[in-house]
């Protein structure tokens, strides 16, 4: 029985090992090799790549920007997504199906197409700016893309469904009698929401934030298209180092640093959330 169970998960394990664990291990090993010009690397062990990655203030600024965009996108999707999730969780029947289609339909279009869509809207001569100019509200228009704002707008839009679905799942699991019980005990609708609904939805908030954060700090296409290489994030830097400069070990070290930094952020976040969710599980 036990052996049969292991056999059943074997294909999945093999897939993860070959496509996920081995490339990562390869990356980690490569980050300790010496850069070379004629081959991807020279198999001489060195700490030089990390010395460069950690000593270079430019790389720290890029890392900081990457994590900052991750946090901002997470906060923005949370604030936009919670009300959406609330309405999605309370809807039923045809309304719910319609809302789900609306929410998920952007996922059917690739991330490149959607980023181009935002470029049409946000460009200097784009829809938003020409409307602003023509209406006289802002004759000079605004710089809406090729900066962090543009990257953030695209990121928030594209990752919003992940946040909404996570939170809506948690909200749907809250028995409708719970807020009513709070009301019967003298809590206003607002108090019942903050004291009962919000704490009980934290597991969904937790999962949604985690998803959006890791998706944002690792995203490549959105910062390239909406940042126009003016907003350099670590994934962009890694690709530039590897492809443009052909410094594969240096790029590997940068990737490992980003990974470690994200892991540290997630670690702090998980311990904070666990404290907030005391009593919800276990």
């Amino acid at each position: 029985m036990r052996r049969a169970a292991w056999l059943l998960v074997a294909p999945a394990v093999a897939l993860v090992v070959v496509l996920f664990v081995m490339p990562y291990a390869n990356l980690l090993v490569m980050s300790f090799f010496t850069p070379a010009t004629t081959a991807p690397y020279e198999p001489t062990v060195t700490l030089g790549n990390y010395k460069v990655a950690l000593a270079d203030s430019f790389q720290w600024r890029v890392l900081w920007r990457t994590l900052k965009l991750g946090v901002l996108a997470t906060v923005a999707t949370l604030m936009l997504g919670y009300p959406l999730a609330w309405n999605l969780a309370r809807a039923s029947g045809r309304t719910k199906a319609a809302l789900l289609v609306l929410l998920l339909s952007p996922l059917l279009v690739g991330v490149v197409i959607r980023s181009f869509g935002w470029m049409v809207l946000l460009a200097d001569q784009g829809l938003v700016n020409s409307l602003l100019r023509r209406s006289g509200l802002a004759p000079g228009g605004f710089k809406l893309m090729y900066n962090e704002f543009g990257v953030l707008v695209g990121t928030v839009h594209i990752f919003l469904p992940f946040m909404v679905l996570s939170i809506a799942g948690a909200l749907e699991n809250i028995a409708p009698d719970l807020p009513l019980a709070a009301r019967s005990l003298g809590a206003s609708a607002t108090k019942a929401f903050w004291r009962i609904v919000v704490p009980l939805s934290l597991p969904g908030v937790f999962a949604g934030c985690l998803l959006v954060f890791v998706l944002t700090v690792s995203s490549y296409v959105i910062p390239v298209l909406l940042g126009g290489f003016k907003v350099i994030t670590t994934p962009l830097l890694v690709v530039q180092t590897a492809v443009d400069v052909s410094n594969w070990p240096g790029a590997a070290a940068q990737a490992v640093v980003l990974f470690a930094a994200s892991l540290a952020c997630i670690g702090v976040y998980v311990s904070l959330m666990n404290r907030a969710m005391r009593g919800l599980s276990g």
């Binding site: 028995a175 719970l178 019967s184």
Partner: peptide, 19 residues
């Protein structure tokens, strides 16, 4: 409103706050 009525209510599934 319910919170102004000064009622005590027990629900079928008790509706105890799980957290």
């Amino acid at each position: 409103l319910p919170e102004q009525r000064r009622i005590g209510m027990v629900f079928q599934n008790y509706a105890l706050f799980p957290h």
